[in-house]
Nucleic acid binder design. Sequence first.
DNA 1: CGTACTCTTGATTTCACTCAATTCAGGTGG
DNA 2: CCACCTGAATTGAGTGAAATCAAGAGTACG
Lengths: 218, 218
Amino acid sequence: VLRTEEIGRMAGLSRSRVIEAGDVVMEEGSVADAVVTVGSGMLKLYRTLPDGRRMITGFATSGDVVGLAAQGNYVYSAEAVTASRVCRTARASLDGMAADNPAVQGRMFAITAADLTAAQDQILMLGCKSATERVCTFLRAMARRGGKDESLPTAYLPMMRQDVAEYLGLRLETLSRVFRRLKDAGLITLLDKTRVRLDDPDRIAALASGAERLGSDN
Amino acid sequence: VLRTEEIGRMAGLSRSRVIEAGDVVMEEGSVADAVVTVGSGMLKLYRTLPDGRRMITGFATSGDVVGLAAQGNYVYSAEAVTASRVCRTARASLDGMAADNPAVQGRMFAITAADLTAAQDQILMLGCKSATERVCTFLRAMARRGGKDESLPTAYLPMMRQDVAEYLGLRLETLSRVFRRLKDAGLITLLDKTRVRLDDPDRIAALASGAERLGSDN
DNA sequence: CGTACTCTTGATTTCACTCAATTCAGGTGG
DNA sequence: CCACCTGAATTGAGTGAAATCAAGAGTACG
């Protein structure tokens, strides 16, 4: 999951399918016979426990490559959270290219290495951070991605609250409550269902790192 | 972090240093100018938050390769938990080999991909599982590694309780309490400070997956 | 033999979870 | 166009699991 149009392009950008929100592109446990490159939209990647508990391990957006690290079988599922354009590249053809072209190999390695770093960021977050810290960390990360429409950074969150909660290792009620407290403190504005503006990026950053506490005592 | 003597061997197994418990082999943020192959002993890999909170992302044992995914700077630190034999391989020489030998590239990719999968396992654990589930999951994983000396699987835990706690995203007091409850339930035996025998592997497995609950109501 | 450490145990608090009710938004059909 | 329905999101009250604070027990080592 990293910006790279190259792999799709190298594969000739063969068939670029358009899919709808809710469509499952990849299923945990099934044979990893292809990788998926995201052209537009957003996918959620998740793993499931036998009893149904889930954890979203990441969101893939334009340019991201999904399922590259799979050896044999996919280790996570991928589902569209918005209408998306995706491109399947057969594993065989990818491996073929990799064998010939060391640059492709290197690219695949770099993508996987970056994914590993991201995964470890999430480990650090899940293991150490409080609910407020997690939410603020997430908002900052998403605001960085989405760019800043206005002068203030704005996070684009097309996925459901439930998905955000599952990514942060929280219940959606808790997420909702944190949003409310951030809103009450004047730190964020919920522009609409999918856009959250960070009105005070510095304090959000402080909250994300745990440097500041969101006391009800203002 | 995956079994592979190959990389060290390919590098000529040049200088195999012996280090002591507590020695830091690799520091988060510093220039990633080498990878480390573990010959014997055990290292802990950890990331740190600015305010000092830490999270151990994994333990590296004989055959594991550490620091491979680093692009530019290391993203985690590595410290010996027992006396260990390690081999540093210069990044430059590794990249040189990789350029010539596609098999090395492939190996590096496979190792990183496996690390990514392990990291996502940990994400799932940290995001979903209770303290008891985490501990049982960990015990099973370590028992699998360590082999079974006797007929019963036995986990070899040379690291401090604090380290285990930091790996599982728990406080060491909580870890201690879970151990006690497992012991009281007759599921494990603390043979000595570093060895935990799983007396009832099936029930440990059930507890690890959340299929069973450790009720104080026996 | 005492010092310093890890580890364990106990008492209490707190943060997030659970369960439950309500509001909100989007879509459908009368 | 409005009433209705559905699923998402919010809010509230109460509980609970793990964290925190604080001793105490066990071990290793000089």
